[in-house]
Design a protein around this nucleic acid. Structure first.
Lengths: 340, 340
DNA sequence: GATTGCTTCTATAACGTTGTAGACATCGTT
DNA sequence: AACGATGTCTACAACGTTATAGAAGCAATC
């Protein structure tokens, strides 16, 4: 069915290599032959077999994007930008959902689609520094998200700083009993983002800078998958342990939106009784009432840098792994400031 | 660097075909040779070159998923389910963002990644029946979303019915001045989902069934990309044209959430003054206050059927194009019923 | 007039896999 | 003892492309 380069060559009366040359912009070609070949290509509606080209070139132009999931708005928004950024460089993106599972992340990091992908962008949750250093096969890899990782290129916001910014904002508004809602602080567990710990650190730092002692009664990690119900029980726990709470810092926007809803349905006014801030700036943060104060990572920048670094690795640089810190900006909305 | 099948063969002391046989589960093999080969595979950490396999097999195990974008939560949620569904069938998903652009949709429908993808799942906005019928190259194709399309497999909810369900729900609650907010009704324009028209039809039908005359002053199409600001101006227009409005049916949840916010910030109470309903059941619909009444398409079902039909096409059936209607279920929440 | 250099093109060998066809045992059946 | 049937393995030719090496033509140089 599909015409091959051979058919084109025959029709144009040239060798297959000449056809290949025309297709690949080889400079030494008479306009006449070029025209003949292009005519034949059009005539047969010929399109190169990409599988064959991949085999021959040893490159595919495909990169894998591995994310824990895609229904989380932050990941979806990031994915979109990465796809568009990749497109600019003639790269196609193939999606893997890891569910944050260690084994699946390893598989991806080892480039299990041998010779099918040129490189990997991995939003990692569970990989350790030690593993990355000893990683068996090494396809070009760029990591998204934080972690104690210096063995691979890495782009992320400074989560500690972001948390500090958010909490400082709450402190500046006069809030003093600020709760934290999100993944467990302290020691990291597998299947749990490494950024969580750093966000807790940022929270503690901000308090410290204001001379406010850390109170464990203000820290709650909702169980399970951070679904709306999990978050609601987290809020209940927080309200029970610390009835005098006047703000909640949520480790991400999804949790924050759930928290706002839980607060309101329990008769707590936001922000007058309890202010809420998150991190991520997902679209829904602008759509709710009250809208959500949050720290917005420069998603476009993260995408651009990630693809850039990966492309560089694919091209075959051997510079040491680089860690890039992306911008993050406080966006004040109604959940801390009150309605406009 | 990577070991090839040849290396494995040499190490195991067998022919390359035998190695291939072991890898592909060819039945006639002594346990002894099988073991030898597997040992060699492990020893060399051999993994088949997928590019070569693709070329030889004429199949890649990759399907393209083309969506207008991925930051729209509905598409993101659908994409996730398709990825997971594909995974079950050992298919990998490659993402294309079409932006609803006609040319890009055509490109995808024609399988421009020749021999790189086995088939395409396309959430189409702009393709016409006529085009699909004359589509030059024909990779296996499954369409998502509605349209006057009988020339390719197709999965979608019945948008007219869904709209009717939502609007009937509003009518059952006693609302009589029900506005419509979303893409323009009437004639379809390129770059605009075909479902919009059908949702308008469903709206009209529901009114009709209650003997309520259609009033153009209740219909508004926000300009632009349905961003929160666009929706807000749409709400303003609606309030200006019909101050007695007591409900708004939004063509999708994203618009609905924007509308709720716009209403609340203008001092209109939801649902006591104006009830709001949408279609899609995106996650944020459960996170806002008030939560959003919506018609929930069976996303998992859509994903499953789409992948199923595509797999069937790839396997090479020649049954006529099939149109499957997915379930959609009314989910009543606070935006119409009041707080729980 | 042979040599060199430049342009233009071609024949052929890869790339790493799987399919075809057949070789060679082994076994039970006539 | 010969025969087909079955099990186990192998040599070799594809798949469709690009890279290498070099041929042929032609101009300018020694």
């Amino acid at each position: 069915m599909g015409a091959t380069i051979k058919d084109v060559a025959k029709l144009a009366g040239v060798s297959i290599k000449t056809v290949s040359n025309v297709l690949n912009g080889y400079p030494y070609l008479t306009p006449a032959t070029k025209a003949k070949v292009q005519e034949a290509v059009a005539e047969l509606d010929y399109r190169p077999n990409i599988a064959a080209r991949n085999l021959r070139r040893g490159r595919t132009g495909i990169i894998a994007l591995a994310l824990p999931n895609m229904s989380t708005p932050y990941f979806a928004e990031l994915a979109e930008r990465i796809v568009r950024e990749a497109e600019k460089r003639d790269l196609t993106v193939l999606i893997d959902c890891t569910a944050g599972d260690l084994e699946r992340e390893k598989l991806v990091a080892e480039g299990f689609r041998n010779n099918l992908i040129d490189g990997v962008i991995l939003q990692h949750w569970s990989l350790s520094e030690r593993y990355l250093r000893s990683r068996p096969d090494k396809p070009p890899l760029v990591l998204l998200g934080e972690g104690p990782v210096r063995s691979a290129d890495n782009v992320a916001i400074d989560s500690r700083q972001a948390a500090r910014t958010a909490v400082t904002h709450l402190l500046d508004l006069g809030r003093r009993r600020i709760g934290v809602l999100g993944a467990r602080g302290g020691r990291r567990r597998p299947g749990q983002p490494q950024a969580a710990g750093r966000r807790h650190e940022g929270y503690a730092e901000a308090l410290d800078a204001y001379g406010i002692p850390f109170d464990p009664a203000l820290v709650v990690a909702p169980p399970g998958a951070h679904g709306p119900e999990d978050v609601a029980t987290g809020v209940d726990e927080l309200l029970a342990k610390s009835p005098d709470i006047d703000a909640i810092f949520c480790l991400n926007d999804r949790v924050a939106l759930g928290a706002i809803r839980a607060l309101i349905t329990r008769g707590v006014r936001v922000p007058s009784d309890v202010a809420v801030a998150g991190i991520d700036d997902i679209e829904a943060a602008r759509l709710t009432t009250p809208s959500l104060t949050t720290v917005a990572p420069d998603k476009a920048g993260i995408a651009r840098i990630a693809v850039e670094m990966l492309a560089e690795r694919i091209a075959g640089t051997d510079r040491p792994a680089r860690r890039v810190t992306a911008d993050a900006q406080l966006i004040v909305r109604e959940s801390t400031l009150g309605s406009s």
